[in-house]
């Protein structure tokens, strides 16, 4: 019995320790190492085999030079700032697109709702890469969007959309929109319609009732949806690489290139550590919101 319990706990535990926690230790260790022209391309400053003295030596020589490097080179802090800006704005656009869809779904006739729900979930199961790729043909210079706009007579010359930040915004809103719709829908669906009727009876217009009743009551869903879009968008790599241009700075792309093209492992590791530190704030806020939602349900 006790052996079984020990087995049941230790197998997933040890797996995650080895393949999740230890790798982070390695990233942290390499981020504090010195860059070197060697294979592997760094000189470790921490040598555990040397025992206590080498640990003491490690702490006395700790210089955070890779982190200092991140602040001196424009590329890095500009990429962090531009990732934050893109993620913020894309989250807001997602909310603008997602909320009306969730609202429409929650107010649709009961027999439609399972189908609508499945239509929102279906893209989840479809390859992320394919959904991003689909936009490449639409947004290019001679793409369908430009053809359509010229045919309408809105523009005379084709617009350059692909390989700009605009295409990155479209890509993020398109791929992450279901993450925004589902939590908002689940709060709107539970909303008690009689509250709105009461509001209208008491003299609210439809619009006022919407802002005073519907929006505050769906707040937790809106917050959850925003974090579910913001957190992955910040570290996004595929969308800026395929839809963005050379001027699109996003930290996920910088990290990837630093590691594979420049082979600078210590700086890539430092970039990763700083990205994680930035993400801790939204992750903690998201989890607090989830806990509140759980408590509200009980």
């Amino acid at each position: 019995m006790n052996f079984r319990r020990f087995f049941l706990i230790s197998v997933p535990y040890v797996w995650l320790l080895i393949l999740f926690l230890i790798p982070f230790g390695i990233v942290l260790k390499i981020s504090l190492s010195d860059t070197a022209l060697a294979i592997p391309p760094y000189t470790p400053t921490l040598d555990l085999a040397g025992g206590w003295t080498s640990i003491k030596e490690f702490f006395s020589q700790l210089d955070f030079e890779n982190f200092a490097f991140l602040t001196t080179d424009d590329l890095y802090w500009k990429s962090y700032l531009s990732s934050l800006k893109i993620a913020f704005l894309a989250t807001f656009l997602c909310l603008l697109v997602g909320f009306p869809i969730a609202y429409g779904m929650a107010n649709a006739p009961d027999e439609w709702r399972p189908t609508l729900m499945m239509l929102v979930i279906l893209p989840f199961w479809t390859s992320f890469l394919i959904r991003v790729y689909a936009w490449m043909g639409i947004l290019s210079q001679e793409g369908l969007l430009n053809q359509f706009l010229i045919w309408l007579g809105v523009i005379g010359e084709p617009l350059t959309i692909l390989n700009t930040n605009v295409a990155v915004y479209i890509g993020i809103v398109y791929t992450y929109c279901p993450f925004m719709i589902l939590p908002i829908y689940s709060t709107l669906e539970k909303l008690d319609g009689s509250l709105l009727e009461a509001g209208e009876d008491l003299g609210c217009s439809r619009t006022t009732a919407f802002w005073l009743i519907t929006v505050p009551l769906s707040k937790s869903g809106i917050i959850a949806g925003c974090f579910l879009v913001f957190i992955p968008a910040l570290g996004e790599f595929v969308i800026p690489t395929l839809l963005g241009g050379s001027g699109t700075l996003m930290i996920g792309k910088v990290l990837f290139e630093e590691f594979f093209s420049n082979r600078d492992w210590p700086v890539a590791s430092a970039v990763a550590i700083v990205l994680l530190l930035i993400l801790i704030i939204p992750i903690v806020l998201y989890q607090r919101n989830e806990q509140k939602m759980m408590e509200a349900e009980q």
Binding site: I26, P232, L234, G235, G252, L255, F256, L275, L276, L279
Partner: peptide
């Protein structure tokens, strides 16, 4: 972020 999981 996937880049961090992959890197580590």
């Amino acid at each position: 972020p996937e880049v961090i999981t992959g890197l580590s």
